[in-house]
């Protein structure tokens, strides 16, 4: 009975970890999917939006400004950086092939990473966060970190706000229509430039939000910090179905669930291979659902 209770307790804690991790992935994956759905671009430089937002927190911290200022600054930095990328790099490439866009964003990612390296420092920089994040709450038998709670709550709020915006506002409905069929936006009298800019701004803001929780978990920033989270977001997007917004969110949580489950169940000797196992499971999922979980198998016209 004791063992059973302990196992149940363990499972609940793992589930909360999975949700917190999954919500961070979901924010990034959703941003990727938004840009993909309006521009057909898989943005490799999305990870650098995370890095740039993280560095904004670092610089403000360095200037002695409190966490309460760093948070909105990180989100705004992500959004602005995304808009700049859009205007400078991707707008001139409008209509280019999938590969051209992909490789351009890959080059942009390398450019920003090395730019941060050259301008600030190749080394990790510490960004200490309020002690609050290291504390836990006791809810009955469960011990849950504030970081997990805040992460999960913020992500859920962000997703709700975004859903309301997309479903209720004219601009949002235009974006949803564009995600379905980009040509339709012209017919609806919505400016494609505004839709694309809005998609980038939202994806950047979501990346900025994700950056806050990533920095909170690590306590540091470095030029390559966006890379591993971006990889997870890529995988999440593929699991959910490339181009599906809700698929991206679902994919984020599925990937996190796989990782946390493997973390808890794999024997110690194979623990280092966890990532490989997780991706192996993803490959198996894709073998049975090559179009992803939430994409209906479409028929050629």
């Amino acid at each position: 009975m004791m063992v059973f209770a302990a196992a149940g307790q363990e499972a609940v804690q793992q589930a909360i970890n999975a949700l917190a991790l999954g919500s961070t992935y979901a924010l990034l994956a959703l941003g990727l999917a938004m840009v993909f759905s309006v521009l057909g671009l898989v943005n490799f430089a999305h990870g650098e939006l995370v890095a740039v937002s993280g560095y904004a927190m670092y610089l403000l911290h360095d200037a002695g400004l409190p966490f309460a200022v760093q948070v909105p600054a990180a989100i705004a930095t992500g959004a602005i950086a995304a808009l700049v990328m859009q205007r400078v790099v991707f707008r001139p490439l409008r209509g280019a092939s999938f590969i051209t866009l992909l490789i351009s964003s890959f080059a942009l990612s390398v450019l920003v990473q090395n730019g941060l390296r050259a301008i600030i420092s190749p080394r990790q920089q510490g960004v200490p966060l309020p002690d609050f994040f290291n504390e836990s709450v006791h809810l009955g038998p469960y011990v849950i970190g504030w970081l997990e709670i805040v992460t999960l709550a913020s992500c859920v709020i962000a997703l709700i706000v975004l859903t309301l915006f997309l479903r209720r506002s004219t601009q949002g409905l235009g974006m949803l229509a564009a995600a379905e069929d980009f040509q339709a936006t012209r017919l609806m009298g919505i400016s494609p430039n505004r839709v694309i800019a809005a998609a980038f701004a939202i994806s950047g803001a979501l990346a900025g939000l994700a950056a806050i929780f990533l920095v909170a978990r690590r306590g540091t920033v470095d030029p390559g910090m966006g890379f591993m989270p971006l990889l997870s977001a890529f995988i999440a997007v593929v699991i959910g179905g490339l181009g599906s917004l809700s698929g991206a969110v679902v994919g984020g949580f599925v990937l996190a669930a796989i990782e946390v489950t493997l973390d808890a169940t794999l024997p110690g000797s194979v623990q280092p291979f966890r990532e490989a196992f997780a991706l192996g499971i993803v490959v198996v999922i894709l073998y049975f659902r090559p179009e992803g979980l939430l994409t209906r198998v479409s028929e050629a016209k």
């Binding site: 999938f98 890529f234 995988i235 490989a276 198996v284 894709l286 090559p290």
Partner: peptide
């Protein structure tokens, strides 16, 4: 597995291939 996917999804899944092998080489 990979060649069954759509073009875009396959390109992204190849990223997963790189990570899997890196983890194996590394460990």
């Amino acid at each position: 597995v990979l060649t069954r996917m759509r073009e875009g999804a396959m390109a992204m899944a190849t990223i997963g291939v790189l990570v899997i092998f890196f983890v194996v080489f590394d460990n």
